[in-house]
Every structure is written in structure tokens, then in C-alpha cells.
Design a protein around this nucleic acid. Structure first.
Lengths: 159, 159
DNA sequence: ATTTTTTAGTTGCATACGCAACTTCTCTTC
DNA sequence: GAAGAGAAGTTGCGTATGCAACTAAAAAAT
């Protein structure tokens, strides 16, 4: 493994990608805050639950999906549970496992946040992309995501 | 301004872009930490100074370039100054202004971090992109960055 | 020329997050 | 089946960061 060769184009692509991300992200967060809504990290976690079968996930699965450390997720779930947006349920089959289960109130919050989030994506991101560019991004980052997943799996498999 | 129309492709592009970013970012930060080096935010700030004429910038310019709030930048500069990576100089022409000036030690740190950073970009980002995709990303995000800059300027200009 | 407004930067406070240590439970090994 | 290894979550602690309030300096208004 020695791919430290980095063509100028790819480096420039990284720079643009990197700074754009922070600006877009900050703009969307600002829109949410201006609308009196919680931040994207709440949305991410609730949405992953929404997608999951029976709207429930183990804590560590949710941590991975929501791009958080396990401890970070514990705190986030504490807050979400306090707001009744989800519930913790102990798993009957494995006493170590906790499940986070989305509540109706959680779904309701997703429905309130989505229009603002969608508008933010449209305004700060999508409006500036051609359809071809969007497709190119999908292709590239789908592949990239798969490769990173695989790398994680490999690391786990070779201790 | 009512571009809340969001085609499915563009939404999917956002999703891929968003999760990929966090994974790549976390991987690169992990590489830096594993090498005993400071985090990307230090690199970003020092590198912006490195690029600037005479290697100096006003605090608020640096904050904008380094993607931080002004208060966040104050704390960061506190730490960088404590490590002698830069110096604060009061501006003789305007008593309110402070300049951050990169030191040789700061340049040295940039030189130490860059190989690790470059390898991270290559491994976690560039290795998975074709040349055409890199070019497409440059085009798209250059345009997007310009549009966001302009939007900032507009906001400033219409109080 | 004095007052008011605006700007640049800093600080108090609150929040969000990760790492490492810990607890509890399960699985493996003998 | 008891002991050790491993896994899932939680908690202590340190750090990073933003917002709002503050200070100091310059610019604008009178």
C-alpha cells in the first residue's frame, strides 16, 4: 500500500471539496437554527432510525450510521430520549444491547425539519450543480464510500 | 428566490457527499493523530498564513479563510502562538487590528504535516476518483464556492 | 470637537464531541 | 461450570467551538 502519489487535479479537487463542505454545512446549520430547529446531528440520527426496520437500531449501529463515536452517541441519545423523540429498549436476547426506537414525536420532528433541510440542500448545494455533475458525484462517492466501508471491515478482520 | 425544487439525483448526490466527507475527514484526522501531529484546523490556519503575502493576515481574514468563527480563531491563535508557530503583531495603522504572522517554526510544522496529510488525501479521497471525476468536482465546487462567496457579499451589502 | 455608531478582537458561558477507563453481560476455553 | 477474553454501553475528563456580551479603537454624525 503506497498510493501517496497525488496528481495536481486530485489535490485541487480535495481543496474545493473541503472548503465547500464546511461552507455548505454551516449555511444549512444556520438555516435550521434560524427556523428554531435542532441541528443536523439530531436529524441524522433520527433519520437513520426512520429508515431502519421497525424504526429501531442498536446503539453501536446507530453510532456508525450517524457518524459518531459510541460515547458521542450515548450523549445524543440521552438528549433525544429526554425530548421523547426516541426510547431506549433493552434487548431481551442480549443483556448488553440497547435499542433506540424512534417515537411518533421523532417522526414528527423529522417532518418539521425536512422542508428546511431540503431547502438548504437545494439552495446551498444543488442549485449550483448540473445534472451531469450530480451524477458524477453520485458515482464517485458511492464507489468511495464502498471502498471505505471495505477498509473498515478489513481492519476489523486483521487483528 | 424559490429554488426549493430538489431533483432526486441532486439529493442523492448530497447524501453521498455528506457521509463521504465525514468519513474521509475522520480518517485523515486519525492519520494525523497517529503520527503525533496536530489536527487539520491547525494546518488550515497555518497554511492560509503561508499563502498570504508576507505570511501575515488580520485575525478576521484568517477566521474566514480558516473556516472558523472569530472567537474560535482567537482561541486557536492563542494555542498556535503559545507553540511559537505564529506571532501576534498589532497593526500600527489601526489600533484595533491584530495580525497573525507565521514563524519559521510554523513553516516547519507545515512541512512535517504535509506528507501525512497528502498521504491521507491520496488514500482516503484521491485513490477512488478518476481524473474525469476530479475535474468535474473542481468545476462544480469552484462554481459553487464562487456563488457562496457572492451570497455572503450580497448579505453584507443589503442591511 | 464631542457624541454616536461601527468595527476588530477577546472573554464568559454553554454545548458537542472523542478517548480512555469502567461496568455489565456474553462467549470461549479449559 | 468457572475463569478469562471480548463486546456493548456508559461515564469522567479534556478539548474544540459558537454565541452573546464586552473592551478598545476608528469613523461618522452632529
Amino acid at each position: 500500500m503506497k498510493p501517496s502519489h497525488l496528481p495536481e487535479n486530485h489535490l485541487e479537487a480535495w481543496r474545493r471539496y473541503y472548503v465547500s463542505f464546511w461552507r455548505i454545512f454551516a449555511s444549512i446549520e444556520a438555516d435550521l437554527q434560524a427556523a428554531g430547529l435542532p441541528s443536523l446531528s439530531w436529524y441524522d440520527a433520527l433519520y437513520e432510525l426512520y429508515l431502519a426496520p421497525d424504526r429501531h437500531l442498536r446503539m453501536s449501529e446507530l453510532a456508525r450510521s450517524a457518524l459518531l463515536s459510541r460515547s458521542g452517541l450515548t450523549r445524543l441519545v440521552d438528549k433525544l430520549e429526554k425530548e421523547k423523540l426516541l426510547e431506549r429498549k433493552s434487548c431481551p436476547k442480549d443483556g448488553r444491547v440497547q435499542h433506540a426506537v424512534l417515537t411518533d414525536k421523532g417522526v414528527e420532528l423529522l417532518r418539521k425539519m425536512w422542508p428546511v433541510y431540503r431547502a438548504g440542500i437545494a439552495k446551498h448545494f444543488a442549485a449550483h450543480l448540473s445534472d451531469a455533475e450530480a451524477k458524477s458525484i453520485i458515482a464517485a462517492f458511492t464507489r468511495l464510500g464502498a471502498a471505505l466501508e471495505k477498509k473498515c471491515a478489513d481492519v476489523k478482520a486483521t487483528p
